[in-house]
Design a protein around this nucleic acid. Structure first.
Lengths: 234, 234, 234, 234
DNA sequence: TATGAATGAGCTTTCATTCAT
DNA sequence: TATGAATGAAAGCTCATTCAT
């Protein structure tokens, strides 16, 4: 595999813990963090210079190190924030839509959010394997997505709406990858697609793959159940 | 900084074209290329040093530059070769299997090939967006895969085996991504999966997504046809 | 090799402009510039190493690049300064000497100044044709000298002291070259001469060549006048 | 001063003495020598690569070393040939012209020859101080010119045509420089001049400087005589 | 003689990080 | 906190020269 930038796990603390910063300090830190995001998006990780980030943040070169102890640390902070943003902010599915409608809405939403952050997500792809810390962050972030989808699949299976023969986790992982990767190929690699056709096709594939388009008699045996969750999240 | 008095004599510095190499030269070039592959797989692109490659190839530092004019150029050569390998070598589907059987075999084959080259494919992911040249190579390589799958889907649609409502290219792209990305998450990011369950799930998702599990009366209208191919490849 | 997704943030690598330097920075810059002068004089351009200059300046290797972006750039700075020095600093010809006396003084002064800077002037000769920038600098520097002499010649012509049949600019260029080159051959190529004889001969040649040694009746027609200068410089 | 490329005096012998070469060998050697001349003229010394010379000569890289043992050695050979060409080939002044006419013809001839070889002469200027060997070659070559002129001046002095107060050698050196440098400034540095005006001015300056434009009674005392030459050349 | 592959010392340049102010 | 000058390890690349064939 790829080498870790630093063998030890990345430090979780900045040179000065965020909590202890004055409000002026917080503002500067934010400026640097935001600048880093812009620069990483624009130039990729390897080609981004601390000097670029400082300049973009409007601070002196040395000021960077007041808030982050290394280039890798800002990277971590930027990517962590990005992944949180990608995971949250999904449209409030307040109304319990029919599965197909909900899936379509989610797909359209995800693709648009991807497009917005495409450049930074491209950088994330570059660095995903650069350190074990990032690889771990990546795995954990995926788990949120996959779990959420897996639980939905299981609910659908329980309700006799989805193919009970599918392993919810494997299916969730596979289908999630499908959409995520489709966006990557489209917005990063530069393949050309049409949004409506894309959303429609992805949705149809999900619906049919999961068997949401016809009934599944409850007699069917399930291959594997998800571990019970006390907090039966959305 | 050279005097620009009269430009007459050509100045060429790039490496000698492969065709003009002596057999000794060819052997050395191969050694360097192979060493680069090993080193890129081991260390990723950014962390690979020309010195590492030369050492691994058992040649002097300067010899590298006899055959490649830069790190980027070997990268290109290595990745080009990798992609050709990934695209070829598919199992001889001599027997016209039932679609599902064929799909399953292809999936299993692909996952195994991916696992074999996982480290280098991880590097490919890192560098995919590093230069337009690589992005283009990437797009073109995907096209081979996608086209092959899209034509298969269309044949199945024509035969009334697959859902005629799907755009073959979009579906091929999406489903291809699904498998490719599943392998990445498994072998590169380090998620843990079981091969049989993986192959089974991926296959079931394909089959159901494409509607290969039930009949499609010929009356159905098709969304978009692929451009006709004279050479109706398998 | 950076992703070209969206170019927004400026990337500047060139050295900080001289005006923006702190006094400490200015001091260091001067040290480097002076060291470069010494090293170039000692070793010529091609044989001078950035490492030599840094060492001579007593700074770290990288510090050189804080102030100059390349060897060529310091060269430019050094030579520009040298030429300014050669052009200025002429002896205050406060007393309006007889032409011959003034010429003799100027020659002696020039030869001595040349001897002092011979090594660096030899380097200037080496690099004069290395870049168009230097060639241009050279041309402009000569113009100062030539113009000054040409105006003197014209004044003498106007006063009936010098041969009116000479083109002032051509004559100034030729006679200036004569002295300059004499110094080069003497101090750089290593021909052996005696100062008094040299000054005497050069002066006599100038005086006679210009016809300063006898009257020129005002009736004589002039070949070409210099463009009028409002500021009739001394 | 500038450093010598190699402390020892350049070897005077090629890897294989020219006399021992077969005619095929001689042809190859000539091709390399000529190619070197072209390349040096085009790119200057520092920017010329042995590879460029070999390619221009149409021989393999290694073949160069069959005939010259180093880059410096070809340089020496090329420049030696150039200086011989510049010194010879002057127009047969069969008819004992009036001094002024002869001088004018010589000047025009020299300027034209300079123009033809300007690029290579520019390179000569670059390298003149690179090694003691070249500096010596330079001095010796100048001596031919200067001596020739000095003897002419002395003859004119003896004949009562030229100012007997001038030291023939100093005057010859200075006046020779004047023309040589004028050509350099014109054809290498890129100052713009008109040929007729240039020839006319240079000639007038010579004539007047030497006092060839009026009589010099034999009573005048001469400053210094040239050492007697048995072979009272042209 | 001719070839062209191989060598490796040597050089320029970059840039994350430190630190005195 | 903020500054920006200073550091120096590290890497890419060049090319004159050697040498086996």
């Amino acid at each position: 595999m790829s080498p870790d930038i630093s063998p030890e796990v990345a430090r979780e603390v900045s040179p000065r813990a965020v909590e202890t910063l004055t409000s002026r300090g917080l503002r500067t830190r934010d400026a640097v963090l935001h600048a880093a995001r812009v620069v990483f998006a624009q130039s990729g990780y390897a080609e981004s210079r601390i000097a670029d980030i400082s300049r973009a943040a409007g601070v002196a070169h040395g000021t960077f190190y007041t808030y982050f102890s290394s280039k890798e640390e800002v990277l971590h902070a930027v990517m962590s924030k990005l992944q949180r943003e990608m995971a949250s902010e999904r449209p409030a599915d307040t109304a319990p839509l029919a599965p197909a409608k909900g899936i379509e809405a989610a797909h359209r939403h995800y693709l648009r959010k991807y497009r917005t952050n495409a450049a930074l997500l491209a950088t994330l792809e570059q660095v995903a394997t650069l350190s074990e810390a990032l690889r771990t962050m990546r795995r954990e972030h995926r788990r949120v997505f996959v779990d959420r989808t897996a639980r939905a699949i299981q609910r659908w299976q329980d309700a006799g709406l989805a193919d009970p023969g599918l392993d919810p986790t494997y299916a969730a992982s596979a289908l999630g990858n499908m959409v995520d990767r489709f966006a990557y190929v489209w917005f990063v690699i530069g393949e050309e697609f049409d949004e409506d056709t894309a959303v429609e096709t992805l949705t149809r594939l999900w619906v049919q793959a999961l068997g949401l388009d016809h009934e599944h008699p409850p007699s069917a045996h399930r291959r594997r159940r998800l571990p019970d969750r006390t907090t039966s999240t959305s």
